[in-house]
Design a protein around this nucleic acid. Structure first.
Length: 477
DNA sequence: TGAAATGTTGGGGCG
DNA sequence: ACGCCCCAACATTTC
């Protein structure tokens, strides 16, 4: 009796069905991570850095329970075959992936190795398996609210506790060879903001501290504070959820424990407003599962022929945060420097790219994929199709964000703008939202020159909005 | 999980 | 006292 545990997006010991299976079964356990050849949606630059640090943390966690992390590289099926031959393992356990390429590969591994190994496929990355939830007519959900209602009802009816972490993992007598983490070359050679790694200490223990701090200090204000990017109003758990350093079930359970601690049977409205966001993650995976072409193709087929603009210079200015619209640029610079962008700002920059610039949402999705630490195919696809208006439960195409109004509304004192655009800090908070509208005398007095210290706006928003609506009209015909 | 255009209402200044 | 205009505030429609 011995088990290979193949780890991917479940880099934790607790609430991990694969480890649970291996320990229940008894005998030595070989935890293995396999770096795969680059495919179309293989991890982007920021995600690779994050993966590097996450694997290092996992190796330490494994060492603490008497085990190790075996690192290999190559086609997973070949590598797993080799490992079986080397170790004599009799079982393989892993947690199912939800994105199209991962599902196909899992299926290939499962069927190819089924005769040689006992295989356990767990489900530890979602609260609700996408194939176990459907509308009354049996179709997949395309609208969030009814989806959420069903998820909540079913979890309330069948609450499940997170699995506990094994206190000890039985080690084999002899460890197979392992690559070093460094040899995977996940860290870029140069030119990457080092702030990124300081922002995101990796590991399950950190993830649980982040969660605990959020529940202590912020969850009760979340419903309001989450829209104000200058405030510490959001959990910042998404990178940990993506890698599985914390599981959604652990998060769900922690909120229910918090409610139980004050004698409540159910979470408060405020706590639910946050769990609702966790359910958006479920919804995104639900959609990706049932509509696997959506990373590249619009869910709503009428958008296949949409007249997107090929504005390459505009796209580059957007990427660099040099559009001249402070709220857009602040978000893009936060993204580049930290690997994360506040969700409210994500909607604003995404609207700017797809509506004001008219650039295809896939270009934006690709940039986010390369720069986000929490880059996740399901969430990224949902978010971009939502903004572009071509997805499930999407904002109608004509819903165009005004980057100035949004800025005034959600960063009224300009603190977020000043944080990421220090060149605007000398201006009064009111003038930061649209410096080209400020009085020239005031700008001069502040020693600020538009075009020198900060770019002039690259377009006229009102005109861009009309052009966007005209493109919609054009695509209808 | 918008924003702009357009419509309606009501208070107050004024002749 | 009255009608008229202005305009802010709010509501509705439209993109």
């Amino acid at each position: 009796m011995s088990t290979i545990v193949w780890l991917r997006h479940d880099l934790r010991l607790a609430d991990n069905a694969a480890f649970d299976f291996a320990v229940q079964r008894g005998g030595p356990v070989w935890p293995v991570f396999i770096a795969e050849p680059d495919g179309p949606w293989s991890p982007g630059g920021a995600a690779r850095v994050w993966l590097h640090d996450s694997l290092a943390a996992l190796a330490q966690e494994l060492a603490a329970v008497g085990s190790r992390l075996v690192i290999r590289q190559g086609d997973p099926l070949d590598v797993l075959r080799e490992l079986q031959a080397e170790t004599g393992a009799t079982a393989l356990a892993f947690n199912a992936r939800m994105e199209p390429a991962g599902r196909a590969r899992d299926e290939r591994v499962r069927t190819s190795l089924a005769t040689a190994l006992q295989i356990k496929v767990g489900n530890s990355s979602l609260l609700c398996r996408p194939d176990r939830i459907a509308t009354g007519s049996g179709a997949p959900y395309r609208v969030f609210t009814p989806f959420w209602r069903q998820v909540y009802a079913s979890l309330r009816q069948h609450p499940t506790l997170p699995l506990s972490a094994p206190a000890q993992l039985p080690a084999p007598d002899r460890w197979p060879a392992s690559l070093t983490l460094e040899s995977l070359a996940l860290l870029p050679a140069k030119d990457w903001p080092m702030g990124l790694r300081q922002q995101w200490p990796a590991g399950a223990a950190v993830a649980h501290r982040v969660l605990a701090a959020f529940l202590d200090e912020a969850v009760d204000h979340y419903a309001v504070a989450r829209d104000f990017p200058a405030l510490p109003g959001v959990s910042r758990l998404s990178p940990y959820l993506h890698n599985g350093q914390i599981s959604p079930r652990q998060v769900w359970h922690a909120v229910h424990e918090r409610a139980a601690a004050r004698g409540a049977l159910e979470p408060s409205e405020r706590e639910l407003s946050w769990l609702r966001q966790l359910a958006w993650r479920e919804f995104a995976h639900h959609l990706l599962w049932h509509f696997p072409t959506t990373p590249d193709a619009p869910l709503r087929p009428e958008f296949e022929a949409f007249p997107w603009c090929d504005d390459e210079p505009g796209y580059r200015r957007w990427c660099r945060g040099e559009t001249g619209f402070p709220m857009v640029d602040a978000g893009m610079r936060e993204l580049w420097q930290t690997g994360l962008m506040h969700n409210r700002v994500r909607m604003i920059v995404a609207s700017f790219l797809t509506k004001d610039l008219g650039v295809h949402w896939r270009r934006g999705a690709q940039w986010f994929w390369d720069t986000l630490v929490d880059a996740n195919l399901a969430n990224n696809t949902l978010g971009w199709q939502w903004t572009a208006g071509c997805g499930a439960d999407a904002a109608p195409y004509f819903r165009v964000f005004n980057p100035i109004t949004q800025s005034q509304k959600f960063d009224p004192d300009g603190a977020y703008l000043a944080r990421w655009l220090p060149e605007l800090a000398a201006l009064s908070p009111a003038d930061r939202h649209a410096p080209w509208l400020a009085s020239p005398l005031v700008l001069k007095a502040a020693g600020f020159e538009l075009g020198r210290d900060y770019p002039a706006p690259m377009l006229d928003h009102a005109a861009a909005r009309h052009a966007a609506l005209a493109r919609l009209e054009q695509s209808k015909r």
